[in-house]
Design a protein around this nucleic acid. Structure first.
Lengths: 166, 166
DNA sequence: CTTGGAAAGTCAACAACACTGACGTAAAAT
DNA sequence: ATTTTACGTCAGTGTTGTTGACTTTCCAAG
């Protein structure tokens, strides 16, 4: 039906039509991916930017502001606005570095960890339901494609994250 | 290494750690997914919202504003601002409905189609490279997980999009 | 036929969050 | 001693989302 241009046999998944469907799937899926956390954040007067910060501080406790900047890909001004509110609201603690006193090491407070849990529970639930519905082989393929789509620098960072670090 | 808590055998892909890695993969991959179009849009003084509108108008020529609203999941006021600039810039044409004069049917002009092509070429290239790197089986799994992650309403819409419509 | 409500679309004002640019401070590196 | 790095801040701007108020059009009940 859509193999007119790829004279080939096993290359049908590379047609423009299939690629476009993949693009749209990515768009619609990302909406679902963020839907549950967005609902929760609305009740807390926070936004997606706060979620991202809280997630990665939880993931890597003691990370520095500079580290976070690289991961999140925003300017320090933008991140600072978010961190400032999280710190003043008592969700994040910022400790001056011991070795290098210019650095600030970020940690979640108990309250911050509570919000993180609430957000990630909702997001994991959707992910778990999706995973369960399709099975481990599909999940493996999913992960492969996502990794291949990343910018090389972030892919390196992503692969360096140890599973055990959680 | 991370199977401590799932007493099970084939359920390792459902551990919290694996789910969290999936969440992060989704986050990083989406950044890659939008990186190329974002660069192009910057040169044109447009944003991601314009991209989305142009994409779906190309996908379904003659679609109404209301249709687009359901697909994009924003308020009509937000979409209207984007459409207004696209129309006044001559990328989109808005025709009053013949049957129902309240409706506006949207079409890309030649200039609009040129921008759409430029954007989707870049985005498809990244998708194609990723697909090629992982092979058809992984791509099938990728698509399955994405579909499972969508909100039911959008999944129905997504599945209804015929491949041939492109 | 008229009237009243619903639907489609537009205009205006506001908030969140990204950006750039400039500046300041403290500490590390050279 | 000078430069660079890490971090914070102030000011200004742009995109994209929101709500609220409005017009035009359609349709259906009286």
């Amino acid at each position: 039906m859509q193999d007119a241009r790829s004279g080939g046999e096993a290359l049908l998944f590379l047609t423009d039509e299939q690629l476009r469907k993949g693009i749209e799937a990515m768009f619609f899926a990302y909406r679902g991916f963020t839907a549950d956390p967005d609902r929760i954040l609305n009740n807390h007067a926070y936004g997606r930017a706060h979620h991202r910060a809280v997630h990665f501080i939880h993931r890597s406790p003691g990370t520095t502001v500079n580290n976070l900047l690289g991961i999140l890909g925003v300017t320090k001004q933008s991140l600072n606005r978010v961190l400032r509110t999280l710190i003043s609201d008592g969700l994040v603690e910022s400790r001056v570095g011991t070795k290098d006193k210019r650095e600030r090491h970020l940690f979640l407070t108990t309250e911050g960890a509570t919000l993180e849990r609430e957000l990630s529970d909702a997001q994991r639930k959707r992910m778990r339901d999706a995973y369960r519905a399709v099975g481990p082989d599909a999940v493996a393929g999913f992960r492969k494609v996502l990794e291949a789509m990343m910018e090389p620098e972030l892919r390196r960072y992503f692969k360096a994250l140890k599973d055990a670090e959680l």
